[in-house]
Design a protein around this nucleic acid. Structure first.
Lengths: 230, 230
DNA sequence: AGACTCCTGACAGAAACCGACAGGGAGCGA
DNA sequence: TCGCTCCCTGTCGGTTTCTGTCAGGAGTCT
């Protein structure tokens, strides 16, 4: 028996039972030594399976590896799929790919769910506005990483009048408009929120982590500026 | 990267697309030689995955799934939630409510998976374009019902020049643009597809069911008119 | 016919797998 | 406190598997 098939069996063994299973029992089940079971459990964990091992008890699977059935009504499914259509029109490569994968996963669970029959799409997003977005000098993935890690950015920007400027800003979110992508950030100089079209960002430099939690900054931004100006 | 994780990735790659994938493409994706992809495919097959490989075409997964889909990744969750944000901006009452419910269900699943650490949103849809959509004389729900039941509509329409007209049309889909809602339909008179702004539809009258399946009409529409004109 | 593509076999170095053995530590009941 | 059950980790060495490369064969599409 190949290792992968054993891992699969192991996963299924853990998935089926809701009672903890001991490594010894699994070892007997799979015809391998106990040591190997430990190694296999570690391998599963490295694959993203959240398996909880307690001394004196055994192994128990925590939810979070598989996508649970997700009972969506017809309208709800339509809303989700329509939303993903919009993302297809406006998202960058990362979001596009993620949207594709998410769509596949959600449609899979919808199909499996009893009662919700796959129906032909009722709504569509309409025509995509621009065929292509302006090039970014700085890839969005780098901005995304900075947002995720709450990293201050020293950024060089060319504004609508063509004037270049440098400043330090705390990036908090990316906005995907129909014709542009915009970085929302707290500007240290102005002590206020500013928005930057990503295609006008000439270069960035990652600095240290900013202290205020991003969630708090976002709340403040939304409270002060209801909307994002282009 | 361990073999098992590669097999998992491979499986997801196959699950995602409905178009055949070549071994060469998979090899590039997984950073592995083509030969290894063949071996891995064979391994998956031996595990029970029903994968169909056709010379000159590529690999395609046969319907019926092997494993339930995996939990949404961070990016995928972001894509879905961002999509629902767009729906919030453009959808009608029905879609809005459905979007709200869908969001709640999906976030419940995500919370159970992420184990407390719900990450702050990385992207936003930008500002909503118009504060309100023009009134519809005919409620969208009635149009939706007609689309669902494939019911021919006798509709009175006032075009952009203000001229009123009557015609029989087969409604197939609603498009939710940033500034308008549009009914896509097959026009019996013109024997072609036509689009109607819902706010210019003065009245409708439900008639009998139209024969051609809506899915087929939609395919034809998408093939002929790549996009929806306003 | 020619371009693609799936598929198989063989080889050899590299990598991993696996059982055996030895311990450590957490929790629980007596 | 002791004993027990289990999870967990480390090491060793023989064995197996894995993987890229090379060399073909055969089916499908344009």
């Amino acid at each position: 028996m190949s290792r992968s098939s054993r891992l699969l069996l192991l996963l299924q063994n853990l998935t089926t039972g809701r009672r903890p299973v001991t490594a010894a029992r699994l070892a007997a089940e799979l015809n391998v030594s106990e040591r190997t079971v430990y190694r296999d459990i570690a391998e599963l964990a490295s694959l993203g399976v959240r398996v909880d091992g307690e001394p004196g008890v055994g192994y128990l699977l925590k939810p979070g590896f598989f996508l649970p059935p997700l009972m969506l009504t017809e309208d709800e499914a339509e809303a989700v799929l329509l939303g993903l259509d919009y993302v297809d029109q406006r998202g960058d490569e990362v979001l596009l790919q993620a949207g594709l994968n998410a769509r596949a996963k959600i449609q899979a669970v919808l199909r499996s769910a009893a009662g919700s029959r796959a129906s032909v799409r009722l709504s569509s997003p309409g025509p995509p506005a621009p065929p292509a977005f302006p090039e970014n000098a700085v890839p969005l993935s780098r901005l995304r990483a900075a947002i995720r890690s709450q990293t201050k950015l020293g950024l060089t920007y060319r504004d609508a009048q063509g004037a270049e400027s440098m400043r330090t800003a705390w990036p908090i979110q990316l906005a995907f408009l129909h014709n542009a992508r915009i970085l929302i950030a707290w500007c240290e100089l102005r002590k206020d929120f500013r928005t930057f079209r990503t295609d006008r960002i000439l270069s960035i430099r990652e600095r240290e982590r900013y202290p205020e939690p991003r969630a708090a900054l976002l709340r403040r931004f939304r409270a002060e500026h209801g909307a994002v100006e282009t």
